[in-house]
Structures are given as C-alpha cells and as structure tokens.
Computed example of a mutant assay.
Amino acid sequence: MWGYADFTAKAKLYFRRASEHDRVDEEFSIWLLLGLEFLLRAPLAKASPILLAVPEGPSILHAAGFASASQAPRSIPYKTVCDRLKVVVPEFGKVHDDAMYLANVRNEELHTSTATLANLENGAWMPKFIRVVDVLIAHLELELTDFLDSSVIEHARALAYEEDAKVKRAIELKLKAAKEFYGKLLPAEIEQRRATPAPQGRIYDEVACPACGEIGRVFMKGVRSTRERIEEDEILTEEVAVGVAFECPVCGLTLTGVPELKAASLPTEKVWTWAADASERFEIENYAGEWEDYGND
C-alpha cells in the first residue's frame, strides 16, 4: 500500500493504458490523470511511507510496518500530497498549481454530471500534465520514456505554451494590419486570392480567418496515432495533429506556432480518423470459400 516501487509501477500501468487506448477521447485523458496521482505519491513514499499516512488511527503505524487488524489504514488526500511535495521536492512549488488544476479536472469528470474532458481542449491540460510529470521524474532520477510513450510526450510538448502579454499584443497588431489590408482589396482581388491553392504535401484544417473572416488554413503536424480498432468491416485509426502555422490566402495573415495560434483563438489540435477496409487487409473473401467447404470432404 505504501511502497515506492508499487506507486511507480501503477503509474506506468495507467500511463500505458492511455497510450494503448484506441481512441482520442475522455478515456485516454482519464488514464493519464489517474496515473498522475500514483506518480505524485511516489516521492513521498521514497522519502518515507509515513508521509502518506493520515495522522488519525493506526495509519502511521501501518505505514511504519506495524499492521493492525482492527482498522483499515488510510492515506492522505491529493491536496495534502501536493502540499507535502513542495517540501520534499524543491522544484514542485513551480508546478503545484498545475497539479491542483489537473486534480480539479479529474474530479469534475469523475464526480459531477459535467462532461469536463469532452468540453476541454487537450491544450488546456496536457501542457500542465507534462510539466508536473517532468518535475517528478527529474526528482526521482528516472527516465520519462519508461513511463510515457514517446508519442504522448510529443503530443503534450507540442501543445505547451506560456501565456505572454507580448505575444498577445503582437497578434493584435497582426490582426489589425491584416484586417486593414483586406478592407482595401477590390472584389475581384478577393475572388482571385480565394482561389489560391493550398501547398502540396501538407495537412491542414480550414477555419475562418480571425482578421477577415475568409477561409484560412491551420497547417498541422501529426504527433500521435492510436492503436487500430475494428468496427464492422473497417479498421479505424485516429491521428492527433497539432497546429504549427496559420495562413490566410486573402488578407495575408500568417501566424506561427501554438502560442500565436492560441493568442488568435485558432484551433491548436485536430483529430483525424482514417479507415481501411478490413476484408482487403485480411483477405477475408479469399478464405470464405475454403471455410464453407471445411468438413464437407
């Protein structure tokens, strides 16, 4: 119950369930958020299992190795874990608020009627998640890739950004300039610019330009693919892509990176579902006749 190795093993188990999940949905997120709590408790268990025990009853004695059959031991709540980590892990103070935010997201999802994760962009919580995990893993002197799949790490890091007043101000000026340029265009020029073809070989999502309202393109970079799953006669795979740039062919607005996309209220992530025909993959039709004849010779 109190062992350091048990907490790290359980964190790995839950993180692995997330990476092996075949959809980009709330279940993927929940496995990561549940696994995080076990990783949060690991530094306290390593320092002293007693740090995880509530002071009431026999819990401290149980954590010290003196089991009692009269009453089940209890561990401290999440908030107390985070408060104690600020003392045990020197760098944890920098991510304490992130850890509490993640706990609130998890609790709202699990204990209220609100579909929190369904309504929350991954960009709102995954950067906080990876920051907390980075601090814990560094303190424990472990390898991050032993806990999280490299694709999940890339996904979280690609969404990471820092709120910066300078970036927001710069984007406001870019939007203003693009809007003024658009207002000076003749109708024929607008039509001509609308017909500008997209660059070849790049994946993108079409969205309304925040400056002029015309159709622009958020160019995407694939960061993670789910495991394949079979539904009826199709093999489905979901691919997560993160925005790397925005271009409007009409007003000429260009933005680069998650911080600028976020500041302009543009999408920073998209999930595509790819389908393949299961019968072609496994050549089911080729075996149908043989199966019908089985046992009739």
Rank of each mutant, 00 (worst) to 15 (best):
K221P: 05
C212R: 12
I60E: 15
Y182Q: 03
T256I: 02
K10D: 13
Q71F: 10
K86Y: 00
T116N: 00
F66Y: 12
I215M: 09
A177N: 09
A47H: 13
M126E: 07
I76C: 09
R84P: 01
R17N: 14
K184Y: 01
L39E: 11
E234H: 07
D233A: 03
D6Q: 13
E27L: 14
P73F: 07
E121V: 00
L40W: 11
E162M: 06
Y101R: 10
A18F: 06
T80D: 13
R202P: 03
W274D: 03
Y4I: 00
K270E: 12
L144G: 03
A158H: 10
L117M: 09
A42Y: 06
R23D: 03
A99G: 03
R194T: 01
S48T: 10
V87M: 07
V132R: 10
E91Q: 13
K166Y: 12
S68T: 02
E172I: 02
A160C: 06
R229H: 04
L52V: 02
N286M: 08
E172M: 08
T226Y: 04
I60Y: 05
F66D: 04
G295M: 09
E180H: 08
E191Y: 07
L120I: 04
T273G: 06
A165N: 11
P77Y: 07
G201T: 01
A288I: 10
E163F: 15
L236A: 00
P259M: 05
I235C: 03
G257I: 00
C212L: 07
H155A: 06
L186T: 07
W291Y: 13
A9Q: 13
N122M: 10
E20A: 13
N296L: 15
L40V: 02
G252E: 03
E141Q: 14
L33I: 01
I284D: 12
K94M: 06
E121S: 15
V223F: 05
L51R: 11
V133R: 11
M100R: 13
F219M: 05
Y204S: 12
R41P: 00
P199F: 08
L13Y: 14
R194A: 05
P199Q: 09
A275S: 14
D22F: 07
L44D: 12
E27S: 13
G93L: 05
G222T: 04
Y14Q: 11
A69P: 00
L140R: 11
K46I: 04
A165I: 06
D25K: 10
D98F: 09
R131T: 01
A263E: 08
N119Q: 13
A278E: 12
